[in-house]
Each structure stands twice: as C-alpha cells, then as structure tokens.
Amino acid sequence: MAVEQTPDPLERATRALRDEPDAGWIEVSQAVMSRVRTLVMPASVVITFDEVGSSERGDRGSIVRVSGRVLTPRLREAVDTPTRAADSVDIEVADDRCTAIHLGLVCVYGADLQQEGRDARAAAASVVHELLGRDPAFDPERDITVEIVDVVEGDPHTQ
C-alpha cells in the first residue's frame, strides 16, 4: 500500500488507516460468533407423564424426559399473539418435575389484560399437557403465574 507523503505524520497515519481494509475485523467477528454459538446453556430436564398420571412407561419402568430447551420455546410460541408477547418464560423444576411456570407478558395498550393473562395461562397449560402429559401434582391455575410486565402502543413483539 502506497502512502502519499505529506509533511504531517498524523495525516499520513490517518490516510493509511482509512485505506486499510476491514477484513481483519470481519474475520475476528466471525471467529468470536462461531465460538459463542458453541456455548451450551444449562437446561433442566422434566419428567413426562402418561394419560393416567404415571411417569413410568412400559414393562421396564422407563421414564421419558423433556429438555427445558424444548419446553421454553414452545411455551413462548404458544403465548405470543398479535396483542401480547412473552417477555420472559421461567420454568421451575424440582426432582425432575415441573413445579411452576412464570410468564412475563408485554401487552398492547387497550387490550383486556385479565383476559390476556387467562388466555396466556390456558395456552401454556395446553403446551404443558401436550409435552409433559398429566402430572397429577401440577395444577395450571396454581402453578402457572402470569405477570403483565409492560403495556405498549403498537406491536408488543418489537418493544
């Protein structure tokens, strides 16, 4: 790279830096992002139940578990509608059983917030029953809590 000779060394350095390609930063950025993508976030596993409330399956007493990495996005997807968005989805697990689900919602201004909460709880309960089955100790009315954390004008998903 040819640098035009000027009497001012600061000007020469500035020109040299401006002419330098940014490819190095792109490579560094890609390397960092590829390493970040390999990080594994810890996830709890949750026991599933059959239609009669038993966690054991088959003659050998097998137990089927579902990862929190599967449950959380499905819950988030189920509660998201045009009038509400999941701000947070937290699952509590004790002894490999789902003991509570806490939903934080952002709702659109003017929506019936109580109805949004009831609908979000029902949607979350549906996902729990679909993925985990009928845990006799889990009561959606008691164990799924819903908190409206914000009310916004416009699309709640972009806030």
Rank of each mutant, 00 (worst) to 15 (best):
D135N: 01
V151P: 05
V79C: 04
E147P: 01
C98H: 02
M1W: 08
E116S: 08
I26V: 12
A122G: 01
F49S: 04
G104Q: 14
I144N: 00
L39H: 13
E77N: 03
G24M: 12
G110Y: 13
L113V: 02
P7S: 04
A31G: 09
I148L: 08
A78G: 05
A31D: 09
E56M: 11
M41I: 03
A100F: 05
S67P: 00
E153Q: 13
V106E: 04
Y109K: 11
D90S: 04
W25S: 04
V128M: 13
G58V: 13
A2N: 02
V128R: 04
A23E: 07
Q115S: 13
P7G: 01
D112P: 02
T72D: 10
V66M: 03
F138Y: 00
A123L: 10
D50S: 05
V151L: 09
L75W: 12
Q115R: 15
V149P: 01
D59V: 15
R69M: 14
G24T: 07
E20Q: 15
P156N: 05
V64T: 02
P21I: 10
E51P: 00
A94F: 15
R60N: 05
D19H: 11
E51R: 00
C98S: 06
V32M: 10
D95I: 12
R65P: 00
G104I: 09
S55A: 13
D135P: 01
S126M: 09
T81F: 13
V70T: 04
V93Y: 09
A85V: 00
G104W: 15
V70M: 09
A124L: 03
D87Y: 12
R118W: 15
V106I: 03
D95S: 13
R121T: 09
V93D: 06
T14R: 06
P9I: 15
H157N: 06
V108C: 05
D150M: 11
L132E: 00
G117R: 00
I148R: 06
A16S: 08
E92T: 10
D150C: 11
E141N: 06
S67N: 01
V79G: 03
L75K: 07
V152Q: 10
Q30A: 07
P21Q: 06
G61A: 00
R76S: 12
V46I: 07
R97A: 06
T38G: 07
L39S: 09
V127T: 05
V149F: 12
R12G: 01
A13E: 08
A122M: 05
V151C: 07
R118Y: 14
A122H: 04
H129Q: 06
G117W: 03
